[in-house]
Design a protein around this nucleic acid. Structure first.
Lengths: 110, 110
DNA sequence: ACAAATGGTAAGCGATGACTTACGGTAAGT
DNA sequence: ACTTACCGTAAGTCATCGCTTACCATTTGT
């Protein structure tokens, strides 16, 4: 399933703390690579590699502007993860309700 | 911030594909370790270690039942990630709207 | 045309992590 | 009491990943 691969890529992309830091830098709007790296404890190539991972995961969009490349958060990529978690949330609540209901009826698992 | 650490733990826990598989097995309701491991390509200790990570992240709850231990999805842990993504979603949309608006006004970045 | 700036990529290194086998410990069956 | 079932933990191995330094391409400024 192509959709599950997208979820996997998005999840692993967001798992790294440095990449979440980059995402936080972009919350205010698009930024070029140098501006991001200047406020971070890692080198610029490291930031570049992280931006690649985030872009491949669909979390960032890139718009070349002359000499620089502006990176911005892509709402669609974030939404994919949101839908996954919403589904997980629904199932968790349903299972929880069913478990407590079964417990009230005195049924143990079989 | 303790809250950000919780997000980090939850995110790294969900980043592993095997752990997401385990989560999927638990969507229907609580299961003991052996039942999970029997339907998975990895060994039972591996599953046990993954369950530990998921529990520490607050994504699973454990209820010892006699000889076995029943693992279930914890809605609260899922909700923490949902809130994080909702905030990211809001900021992304706001930044996107502002960027297009600035572009309409002809302002380039400074 | 030359120099400076911006940024992606390759190679190599160190650390983290996922898995296995082996072991111990507790609860249930006979 | 003994055996079996269920499960967590320790030790060790192998792959993956994040980082750095070097290098190269492209674009802007003079």
């Amino acid at each position: 399933m192509d959709h599950k691969d997208a979820i996997a890529a998005t999840m692993t992309a967001l798992a790294d703390p440095t990449r979440r830091d980059i995402i936080d830098r972009l919350r205010g709007g698009p930024l070029p690579v140098g501006a991001i790296a200047k406020t971070m404890p890692v080198s610029r190539p490291a930031v570049s590699q992280h931006l690649r991972v985030l872009s491949d995961a669909g979390l960032l969009s890139v718009t070349p502007s002359g000499n620089r490349r502006l990176y911005a958060i892509a709402p669609d990529g974030v939404d994919a993860l949101r839908q996954y978690l919403d589904g997980l949330w629904d199932d968790a609540l349903a299972a929880f309700a069913r478990a407590t209901q079964d417990q009230a009826k005195g049924k143990q698992d079989e």
